[in-house]
């Protein structure tokens, strides 16, 4: 459960890292908001991807 939730949230965060620049390119998001959004979605990726990796590792035998 933890693994699936972290995986979904991690992938969503990575997708968000692309949504912000696309929005900026299309002129829908201002430069400052795009850069701030990219920082937060990047931080979110690292948090959830680390949890995902940790949860994946726990099930494995040493």
């Amino acid at each position: 459960m933890m693994k699936t939730a972290s995986a979904v949230l991690a992938l969503l965060s990575l997708a968000l890292c692309l949504v912000f620049p696309v929005g900026f390119f299309l002129g829908r998001i201002a430069s400052e908001r795009f850069k701030l959004g990219l920082v937060f979605s990047s931080a979110s990726w690292f948090i959830f991807a680390s949890l995902w990796t940790a949860a994946s590792g726990r099930g494995k035998k040493p």
């Binding site: 890292c17 912000f20 620049p21 390119f25 991807a49």
Partner: peptide
């Protein structure tokens, strides 16, 4: 391992922006 997909996405994001 965690960082590499993100680095690639930042390359694409930077170019797009």
């Amino acid at each position: 391992q965690v960082a590499s997909p993100w680095i690639f996405v930042i390359f694409i994001a930077g170019a797009l922006a």
